[in-house]
Design a protein around this nucleic acid. Structure first.
Length: 586
RNA sequence: GCCCCGGUAGCUCAGUCGGAUAGAGCAACGGCCUUCUAAGCCGUGGGUCAGGGGUUCGAAUCCUCUCCGGGGCGCCA
């Protein structure tokens, strides 16, 4: 109904323009909002106040003219001018009844739109290094990214969901080496595990499968491996130099082929685990994009060359630098190190170049907030390459801190004792985890209360909303038990019987749903939908307690059943977009 | 030092492309189950929107300074 009112206002504006009350060249955006206070009607527009300067008239006078020029509509009961010049719209009952009919007719499609007109959008999210299982921090990015993608799809964009797999680079070499050292341990070698290695139990598991596959065939003498390697930190050395030395030795002692096999075994095992974890979390991808493939296809080289040809690189201290300061970055960045290796940043330039080459209208990256400093250099690179950096939207997700029993849950990634996403899902369930993660806007630091997420009470917003859905289902079960039936057509014909204030409030809220989905999608703010559903569930529970649905009067009963069926539908649709289930009974 | 995010009720947070009297949940207190699920509902109390200055018809919202909290500033990824 909002589109209808906007249309009416637009038509009033153009009448004023033909009459000469308003300059024809004034740019006009129709500003129309839900009124917060019902005394101000259902919708309010500040159009007259915005246009008064251009029109050279007082706001209230201009409002008067606009109202006079409004075309008639049977959905509009009256229009008032109030305060400094607000135009307040009061809708007729038939408007609410119409939107109720729409919900029951469109069912799961209610709230969807073609606003995006099928434009292609890419959403890249999580993209955690495959060096270990996902932890709770990744969970927020996963839940948020999935919702942003689903919302955009709901409003008509063609969405491509992608995970960038960092399957190249030093961190992966550290993983491969960690696996190999654990393997040597399983073979009976005695060694001191490096301070900087990956210590999680999953590394032992991978080492064990390597051992099952090869027995002791890959065994070397541990002393020989550690010989000539710089001391580790506990021995007064440098842990980075120590691990780099171990990587080098592992590589040469194993040989390239076997090293690669160890490396890939670790990669595949962990990636499989991440895939299963995300799938279990209801998060699906269209593509898992390999970083290594960029190097192998020459895309990284091509990106570096293109930067060079455009005159944006220079050599210094044996390394090749990108002059990103020319494009707003705070310092220049290395793309090729003095040892000849390209940096992670070089891959990322190639990756983003690749994204834009694929022709997306919009590219959305969802990163942890700790990567914020990385944004200017990626945009700088795109600009330097002649691409439109404005097409790239980087959404930064702040940290989530877990609380249990009022105490902060400690997470330590290094020791391998972090709380994994899988543990969280097992503890609180997928529904609560998905909902809690998107309940807050992404720029907000989040306190994740495990006890609350687990509690089966009204304190828990997830159960509160789901319970409203289950209650409607229960009413329909009761209907059958009482050997009554629901006639939706009869209900639709008697919607005027819905005259209680609770019923009005519910109908108004149900009609808001498409606007909420649109705002949540365009603003990348799933929390708006979460809050809306909480409100809607509240309206329903209030109504439920105040009135009986299964009444004798068949006309009233059918009308009320239409209303609660529509409520159930909207809750199911909304929860669906958040990745939360809508149970029939609880 | 520079950069990003935050500061709104006792707690956790909405509201922020300027709009009418700043909202919700929890916690506190008082009520409601012979009637469709009490995992629910109703009521009461609770505010210097961190602080100063500015912009204007109008500021929690925009600009600026200060204070406080979190994060980031590698030839790591």
């Amino acid at each position: 109904m909002k589109p209808l009112l906007s249309q009416l206002l637009a038509s009033a504006v153009s009448s004023l323009q033909t009459q000469g009350d308003l300059p024809a060249d004034t740019p006009v955006t129709i500003n129309l909002e839900r009124a917060r206070d019902r005394r101000h009607g259902d919708f309010a527009s500040n159009l007259a106040m915005v246009l008064c300067k251009a029109a050279g008239a007082k706001p209230r006078d201009l409002a008067q003219k606009l109202v006079a020029a409004l075309p008639a509509s049977d959905q509009m009961e009256k229009v008032e001018i109030a305060g400094p010049g607000f135009i307040n719209f009061f809708l007729s009952d038939s408007a609410w009844h119409a939107s109720l009919g729409q919900i029951l007719q469109q069912r799961s499609l209610y709230g969807r739109s073609d606003l995006g007109a099928g434009k292609a959008v890419q959403v890249e999210f999580v993209s955690a290094n495959p060096t270990g299982p996902l932890h709770v921090g990744h969970g927020r990015g996963a839940a948020y990214g999935a919702c942003v993608a689903d919302l955009l799809e709901a409003v008509g964009y063609k969405v491509h969901r992608e995970y960038y797999v960092n399957d190249a680079g030093r961190q992966m070499d550290i993983l491969a080496t960690s696996v190999y050292l654990r393997y040597l341990d399983l073979c009976g070698e005695t060694l001191t595990f490096p301070a900087n290695g990956y210590k999680g139990d999953y590394v032992w598991d991978i080492a064990a499968s390597l051992h099952r596959r090869h027995g002791d065939a890959l065994r070397v003498n541990a002393q020989a491996l550690f010989a000539e390697v710089p001391d580790d930190e506990p021995q007064g050395g440098d842990k980075e130099a120590h691990i780099d030395g171990l990587i080098e030795r592992t590589r040469s002692l194993l040989g390239e082929e076997r090293y690669r096999e160890t490396f890939d075994l670790g990669l595949e095992t962990i990636l499989d685990d991440i895939r299963r974890d995300l799938e279990g979390f209801g998060v699906r991808y269209d593509e898992w994009f390999s970083e290594r493939s960029l190097a192998e296809s020459g895309a990284v080289q091509r990106a570096i060359e293109r930067l060079g040809e455009a005159g944006h690189t220079y050599e210094q201290d044996g390394a090749l630098w990108f002059r990103s300061t020319d494009f707003g970055d705070e310092k220049d960045r290395v793309v090729v190190r003095d040892n000849g290796q390209t940096t992670y940043f070089a891959s990322d330039i190639a990756y983003h170049m690749n994204k834009l080459e694929r022709g997306y209208e919009r590219v959305i990256d969802i990163w942890g907030a700790d990567h914020h400093g990385y944004v200017p250099r990626v945009k700088a690179a795109l600009t330097a390459l002649g691409d439109d950096a404005a097409k790239l939207d980087v959404l930064l997700v702040q940290f989530a801190i877990l609380y249990r029993g009022g105490e902060r849950v400690q997470m330590s990634t290094r020791s391998g004792e972090f709380v994994t996403l899988r543990e969280l899902r097992q503890e609180v369930g997928n529904d609560a985890a998905r909902f809690f993660y998107v309940m807050r806007k992404c720029e907000q630091h989040m306190d994740f209360d495990l006890d609350l997420a687990k509690s089966e009470s009204s304190d828990n917003p997830v159960y509160y909303i789901q319970y409203a859905h289950a209650r409607v289902a229960s009413v329909f079960r009761q209907l059958k038990e009482k050997e009554l039936s629901w006639n939706p057509d009869n209900g639709a014909a008697h919607l005027s019987r819905l005259s209680e204030s609770h019923e009005d409030a519910l109908m108004v809220n149900l009609s808001r749903y498409p606007e909420v989905v649109e705002a949540a999608a365009l603003g990348h703010e799933p929390h708006q939908l979460a809050h809306y559903l909480r409100d809607l569930a509240n309206e329903f529970h209030t109504y439920y307690n105040a009135h009986q649905f299964l009444v004798e009067d068949a006309d009233l009963r059918d009308a009320r059943l239409n209303l609660i069926a529509a409520t159930r539908q909207v809750i199911a649709n909304g929860l669906g977009l958040l990745g939360v289930s809508a149970p029939e009974r609880m």
